[in-house]
Design a protein around this nucleic acid. Structure first.
Lengths: 187, 187
DNA sequence: CTTTACCTGCCTAACGTTCGGTAGGTAGGG
DNA sequence: CCCTACCTACCGAACGTTAGGCAGGTAAAG
């Protein structure tokens, strides 16, 4: 465990938080999953707030890399817009989990400030990428790209939330298709 | 307190749950707010799951009445579609609270079955009403009304979630305007 | 080459607090 | 006399967190 215990904790905490939220993160359960004792987590993170912030930060760092890679490998902004909901779909497929940012937005009032901030950055990263890609694809006028990007992000988040409450990924697919049919997402 | 203590508990529990979720509902805090002792809540509700289910049920009963009343008083389905997001907006105005159903969708994995079910009914009620009104307004073909209704409900939920994470109601307004501009909501 | 010092990574054992829930009692009205 | 509505006084479990210790490694000092 030694060298990468911190990473193992981060990964396990992320998975748990996407299923049970920040409030559902328990040092005892988390430690058991990683294979150490609860108190040992304090060797890697000074507090639960610190751990939560680190998890959220790593979460948006990962998605930023993933989105940029998608744009680079396809080189096709329109294809990217089509693929974008897939990042949310994957969480549902993986144990009916939610986007960490959505969960933390719900838990917003109970969150330490540092965690709130990192969760917001996730949304910012998504919106900025969407806005850029929307302009590249010529789907909207540059002036409207930010607003449309936010609308897409919020709507996709809502679709994920709805599908989760039904434990049914196909509901997510149907909602995304509905967004395309109505014009929110390019068809 | 006597006769309507049950109602007082329900109302207080709803408010708390919209801010902190089902998990954030504490018998001690709730009792203090109502003006009785924690153990006395068991005189009105057999368990926390019972209380949660009762709160969620009352929640969708109230919204069902409110939506039907809106349609009856205006008599104008198009006006109703315009007013619909207002029900979500009001929660944000009232202490940056979330739709109970959204919060419970996030908490889904931690919820007693009875509570899960009542939370789903809230969504069903909204979708059914939206589908009906969409058809009345001639905004979509009857065959597509259910799918569009679900898309609207999910998108508006997502908008509320996003606005909450920024403690900024104007973000909600901007997102709804974005939905109108893109064609998801009738303009 | 060895001793001393300090480090990392983890442990055991407990802290005080809060949680949902239970047992049993009491005051008052029908 | 009993039912309603509430009470006091607990319970066991779980929570985040802390104190203190122990093995093993690294590195500078004698």
């Amino acid at each position: 465990m030694s060298t990468n215990a911190r990473e193992t904790i981060l990964a396990a905490a992320r998975k748990t938080a996407q299923a049970h939220g920040y409030g559902g993160l328990s040092y005892r359960d988390l430690a058991a999953e990683v294979g150490i004792k609860a108190a040992s987590i304090y060797h890697h993170f000074a507090s639960k707030a610190d751990l939560g912030a680190a998890v959220a930060r790593r979460y948006w760092e990962d998605i930023a890399v993933e989105l940029d890679a998608m744009l680079e490998t396809t080189g096709d902004p329109m294809a990217c817009l089509r693929l974008y909901p897939g990042t949310f779909r994957r969480s549902l497929e993986d144990g009916n989990r939610l986007c960490l940012c959505s969960f933390m937005s719900a838990e917003y009032a109970n969150l330490p400030e540092a965690v709130q901030r990192e969760a917001q950055v996730f949304a910012d990263v998504n919106v900025a990428w969407l806005a850029k890609v929307l302009v590249m694809a010529g789907a909207v006028k540059p002036k409207e790209s930010e607003a449309r990007a936010r609308a897409i992000f919020a709507a996709v988040s809502g679709a994920q939330l709805y599908a989760r409450s039904r434990s049914d990924v196909s509901q997510f697919d149907a909602l995304i298709e509905g967004y395309r049919a109505s014009g929110l997402l390019p068809a």
